[in-house]
């Protein structure tokens, strides 16, 4: 921040300067107040209220544990929770990477060939319309218990946003721009690399962000049904034995994992397309 300064100020200017400095200080304070202080206070107040409510109304632990109880459980059973987390992370990331590759390939095929588009389109619409949760029990039948089921369920969960965004992205180059590079005698390959793909990237990234947050959700639902490991399994197990603090601990860890993935995707996006309007 640069200091406000006037050389050889007159009396009136000195007064102005003091006033301006006051205004700048006020603006700085408001920035901190709105930017971090208020949200932080709100969070702390909420937790405090929750803690007090549990003790005040003498709620049993299996109904609603207090934040401190959840925290204690998390510390006590940290190694177990981490091993479940690891399983969920593996299922999510392997599934997500498969969906990413598959989604971009299928999306590119649809975007470049009208016939492929017409052939695949009805199937995609139908597949997408089926509530994905109902696929989970079927996967148990088809593939069985374990990691493979989980991975496939993540693929099912994250594939569609990537396909759709890739198709939209690759088709969104302006016709006049395509004619312009045609006038520069660009071949198909150059048009793809220098025009279509950069144009597509911002769209693909919005699909990737949706898919990235969907991946842990998919993994957890998969673990509800067809797994004896992972945070989804931990959650089911905890609820089944009315171990609510453990259930809360699992949910918190799942959420932190989801938020981490989201910020990772945002980071990659920021590094890949710094030129896009959303990143400026």
């Amino acid at each position: 921040m640069t200091e406000l300064r006037i050389d050889n100020p007159s009396a009136a200017e000195t007064e102005d300067l003091a006033e301006h400095q006051r205004m700048v200080r006020r603006a700085k304070w408001l920035k901190i107040y709105h930017g971090s202080l208020l949200p932080l206070l709100s969070g702390i107040a909420g937790l405090l209220l929750w803690e007090l409510a549990v003790w005040g109304f003498a709620l049993p632990q299996y109904l609603l544990p207090a934040p401190m109880q959840v925290f204690e459980t998390m510390i006590d059973r940290w190694p177990v929770l981490m091993s479940h987390l690891w399983y969920t992370v593996v299922a999510s990331s392997v599934g997500f990477v498969i969906a990413l590759v598959l989604g971009i390939v299928v999306g590119a095929a649809i975007a470049t060939s009208r016939s492929i588009d017409r052939v695949l389109y009805p199937w995609l619409v139908i597949a997408h319309a089926i509530p994905k949760v109902v696929v989970a029990p079927l996967l148990l039948v088809w593939i069985g218990f374990g990691l493979k089921s989980g991975i496939i369920f993540v693929v099912v969960f994250t594939f569609f946003p990537i396909v759709v965004s890739t198709v939209t992205g690759l088709k969104s180059a302006e016709p006049d721009l395509l004619q312009l590079v045609k006038s520069m005698r660009a071949n198909r390959w150059q048009t793809m690399w220098k025009i279509r793909i950069p144009t597509a990237l911002p769209h693909v990234f919005s699909g990737i962000k949706i898919a990235a947050t969907g991946a842990p959700v998919g993994a957890v639902i998969g673990e509800f049904v067809a797994s004896n490991r992972g945070l989804g399994y931990a959650l089911i197990q905890a609820v089944g034995s009315l171990d609510t603090p453990y259930a809360f601990a699992s949910v918190i860890i799942i959420s932190v994992f989801g938020v981490t993935i989201w910020y990772l995707a945002e980071l990659v996006e920021k590094l890949s397309i710094p030129w896009h309007a959303s990143q400026r």
């Binding site: 302006e174 006049d176 721009l177 312009l180 220098k194 025009i195 950069p198 030129w275 896009h276 309007a277």
Partner: peptide, 13 residues
């Protein structure tokens, strides 16, 4: 040939 359209069509990247 050189072509210029109504939109400048500059590439943002």
């Amino acid at each position: 040939v050189g072509v210029v359209f109504q939109k400048d069509l500059l590439l943002d990247w």
